[in-house]
Simulated scan of single mutants.
Amino acid sequence: MRYQEILPLPALQAYIRYFWVLESGEEQVGSKQFKILPDGIPALIYQDTPNRFRDEQRQYTPQLYVYGAFTTYTNQLVDGPFRIIGAYFEPTALKAIFKFDASELANQNVPLDDLVSTSLLDQLQQAPTTQEKIELLSDFVLQQVQTLRYANQKAIFASTLLQRGRSLAEVQAQMNLSERTLERLIKQHVGMTPKLFSRIMRFQTSLQLLKTTDFNTLTTLVYQQDYFDQSHFIREFKTFTGNNPTQFLKYSEEKLSNFPAWKKEEED
């Protein structure tokens, strides 16, 4: 597989973390499984070829769609060669781009046409190069944010603190917010409760450490990330990946962050 990341225009960096392109190459035949991990990040996705990616219920994802932040892992199968282009948004960007509360889009793949009236899909299909497709996606998002002109600085700041590992109590104290106000703010702009968002952020930090640090045992990681014990960490890991850490490292092949290809166990 081939993978690349492209930084957004300066005017979009408050809304888009980066664009990415993932393609299999023509050598792929048959089906391949991918595991999608929760990371608190919504996205806009375009597939060059429709009816490639499908879930475990055999429902195909739309060719051009938005997904809200997912709160658990999902599995997808891709049939044949593919190329997909995505824009990873900031956690609070959905409301600024589409005006919808993030909670309305959580755990869903929603066709873009269901959210806004646009000819973007036709334009993307006609654009001959990846660069032109990314320019079209950039122009679309820029037009949306300039039209809506919405930003909630409290939500952005609270989300940033939670991503940095601050506890809910610390965020409430620093921002002088009640528990209920913080919950309403994060659910509206991120799409889940602050507690769940915080758990996902801790899982993501632990996952990166697991992939990049040579731990002799999990104990160091467990206490470094303030899990109660190793059993607690493994339960959380299974909740967000469907596997224990050993299985995940053994069978996942990751090019795109939180979208690893999954090797079949019989290939081991």
Results as ranks from 00 to 15, higher is better:
residue 103 S to N: 09
residue 78 V to K: 01
residue 59 Q to K: 15
residue 78 V to N: 03
residue 66 V to G: 05
residue 59 Q to Y: 00
residue 103 S to V: 14
residue 77 L to G: 02
residue 67 Y to S: 13
residue 54 R to L: 09
residue 98 F to C: 10
residue 100 F to L: 10
residue 64 L to A: 12
residue 64 L to M: 11
residue 88 Y to N: 12
residue 71 T to S: 14
residue 66 V to L: 11
residue 59 Q to W: 00
residue 53 F to L: 06
residue 82 F to Y: 15
residue 98 F to I: 11
residue 77 L to D: 14
residue 100 F to Y: 12
residue 98 F to H: 08
residue 63 Q to C: 05
residue 92 T to S: 09
residue 58 R to V: 07
residue 100 F to H: 15
residue 71 T to N: 12
residue 80 G to K: 08
residue 55 D to Q: 06
residue 106 A to S: 15
residue 95 K to A: 02
residue 100 F to N: 14
residue 92 T to G: 00
residue 66 V to R: 12
residue 107 N to W: 00
residue 58 R to I: 04
residue 72 T to I: 03
residue 73 Y to P: 05
residue 61 T to G: 00
residue 63 Q to V: 08
residue 94 L to T: 08
residue 100 F to R: 13
residue 82 F to E: 06
residue 80 G to L: 04
residue 99 K to P: 01
residue 104 E to S: 14
residue 95 K to T: 11
residue 76 Q to M: 07
residue 98 F to A: 08
residue 71 T to Q: 15
residue 96 A to L: 00
residue 78 V to A: 02
residue 66 V to W: 03
residue 59 Q to D: 07
residue 98 F to Y: 13
residue 55 D to S: 12
residue 59 Q to M: 06
residue 61 T to D: 07
residue 58 R to Q: 15
residue 71 T to A: 02
residue 60 Y to T: 04
residue 95 K to R: 15
residue 89 F to R: 04
residue 64 L to N: 11
residue 90 E to A: 07
residue 102 A to N: 01
residue 69 A to G: 10
residue 102 A to T: 04
residue 65 Y to S: 15
residue 92 T to I: 06
residue 64 L to E: 13
residue 85 I to W: 00
residue 75 N to K: 14
residue 102 A to H: 03
residue 101 D to H: 12
residue 74 T to A: 09
residue 62 P to G: 11
residue 59 Q to V: 13
residue 84 I to D: 03
residue 94 L to K: 09
residue 56 E to F: 08
residue 71 T to V: 05
residue 64 L to V: 10
residue 74 T to P: 00
residue 65 Y to R: 13
residue 76 Q to A: 10
residue 102 A to M: 01
residue 104 E to G: 03
residue 83 R to V: 09
residue 80 G to R: 09
residue 101 D to V: 03
residue 96 A to Y: 04
residue 59 Q to S: 09
residue 92 T to F: 13
residue 86 G to V: 07
residue 96 A to V: 03
residue 75 N to Y: 03
residue 79 D to S: 13
residue 88 Y to F: 06
residue 55 D to A: 08
residue 65 Y to C: 12
residue 103 S to F: 01
residue 80 G to Q: 07
residue 82 F to P: 11
residue 101 D to M: 04
residue 103 S to C: 06
residue 93 A to Y: 05
residue 80 G to H: 08
residue 85 I to T: 14
residue 100 F to C: 05
residue 55 D to M: 02
residue 57 Q to M: 05
residue 93 A to R: 09
residue 99 K to L: 09
residue 68 G to H: 09
residue 74 T to L: 07
residue 88 Y to V: 05
residue 79 D to N: 15
residue 90 E to F: 02
residue 74 T to Q: 13
residue 95 K to Y: 02
residue 57 Q to N: 15
residue 94 L to R: 09
residue 100 F to W: 07
residue 73 Y to S: 12
residue 70 F to S: 13
residue 105 L to Q: 05
residue 72 T to F: 00
